[in-house]
Design a protein around this nucleic acid. Structure first.
Lengths: 225, 225
DNA sequence: GTAATCATTAAGTCTGTGTAAACAGTCCGC
DNA sequence: GCGGACTGTTTACACAGACTTAATGATTAC
């Protein structure tokens, strides 16, 4: 599973700040685009379709709030993350900023580390496919160690079996369609028969020894204890 | 469609703060649960499954950070929103808090308006990625889980039955013509006899045990409680 | 009262799933 | 390179249950 670089657009009229933020975000692996005023920000946002837009509130041409409103009014930017960054930290502006549809509001000066933590937190919420230890009652799934524990017993699953279990366990109760499973575990392009999923499900059920995967006939499978 | 109230759990050892936050959140229409230490927060979180948890960092029994870690390690709280609230605004704590999996980190004292804006901003973001659950009186229809609940009882419907119920329940009171039903549930091209619908309707009525589908003779069916 | 429409039931068909077994590919140690 | 162990995939078949149909009885509209 490859993670393509997240695109971040930063708009600020102070070159120094632009540089500092760009430096830090690049180091974290983000692809950074910069703009020095509101109009340029809008134009570049349209062209590059960033995942996150960081807007200085006080900018020439158009303010950050104006840019935010214009972006939010377009369907293409409905899910785009937006952070306001500003030296003016009066309450009214912050509230208006957040109500315009921004996802966070940060005051300058801000430490680069805190800044990065906030950016990461936003992205974390957005993509839920993060590798972290899952615990459900007496079962733990550790994607990093590639280990499943039921009670105290460690169970060894094969790669596909493990990925399949991870997918289902990520959203317990939610039904995954066979197509979803194929796309997520096998990849959109690979063509395998439908029975393949069954066989893997069976092996998981067999190895785990407990009944935690429910079949929803004609629809798919779901994880449940 | 009615929107069920979002549940918010607040954990803080200062009764004053608990009261202020509760007052403000309740006014906005949130359902508020409170806890006065870490252990109580964990216990109530498990019981009530809140949508948002607000944690004071410095609490008796367990700190907010510890509670956050424990919650995040359980799959059931993977998507639960978490906000840290603290008087200690040192950089390290904030970063650690955010990296633990919190979605926001706020410093006391905080204006109620700003606080509410932030809470609303988080829910706004969440809404976009969440499939909608239909709730009608004591019945809930969850397309993601493929489950219908009447009262506390979970009822398992077959695929066609479920799709049919979803269709009707989407617009309670509205009459769906037999043709509409055929097109929506079976597809424009599939040819099945009229009696087929009747049989499925019957099975739904039978399984649900309550009289929620009304026949409109010569026209079609409608969902009604 | 009659015809049309719907409910109910039983029975048959058919699709989707579980399972076992076999095959192909990969990774290892030797 | 060779053989064994293991994983991933396919195939074939049996079975359950979902779906459909048809036949009969009940209800409604006119």
């Amino acid at each position: 599973m490859e993670t393509k670089a997240r695109k971040v657009l930063i708009a600020d009229d102070e070159p120094d700040i632009l540089e500092i933020l760009k430096y830090n975000l690049s180091n974290e692996g983000y692809e950074v685009i910069t703009a020095k005023d509101g109009d340029e920000a809008l134009e570049k946002a349209r062209r590059t379709q960033p995942d996150l837009v960081i807007l200085d509130v006080m900018m020439p041409k158009k303010t950050g709030v104006e840019v935010c409103e214009l972006l939010r009014s377009q369907a293409a930017f409905k899910d785009t993350l937006i952070i306001f960054l500003t030296a003016v930290n009066d309450e009214g502006t912050q509230i208006r900023g957040l109500e315009t549809g921004a996802d966070d509001y940060l005051s300058k000066p801000i430490s680069p580390k805190v800044f990065l933590s906030r950016v990461n937190a936003l992205f974390r919420r957005l993509n839920k496919t993060e590798a972290r230890v899952l615990t459900l009652e007496n079962m733990t799934i550790d994607p990093e160690r590639f280990i499943v524990k039921v009670g105290d017993e460690e169970i060894i699953l094969a790669k596909k079996e493990f990925e399949l279990l991870c997918l289902l366990a990520q959203k317990p109760g939610r039904v995954f369609l066979r197509n979803e499973i194929l796309n997520q575990v096998w990849g959109n392009d690979v063509i395998v028969g439908d029975r393949t999923i069954d066989v893997h499900i069976r092996k998981i059920r067999q190895k785990l020894g407990i009944d935690c995967i429910t079949t929803v006939k004609g629809v798919g499978y779901k994880f449940e204890l």
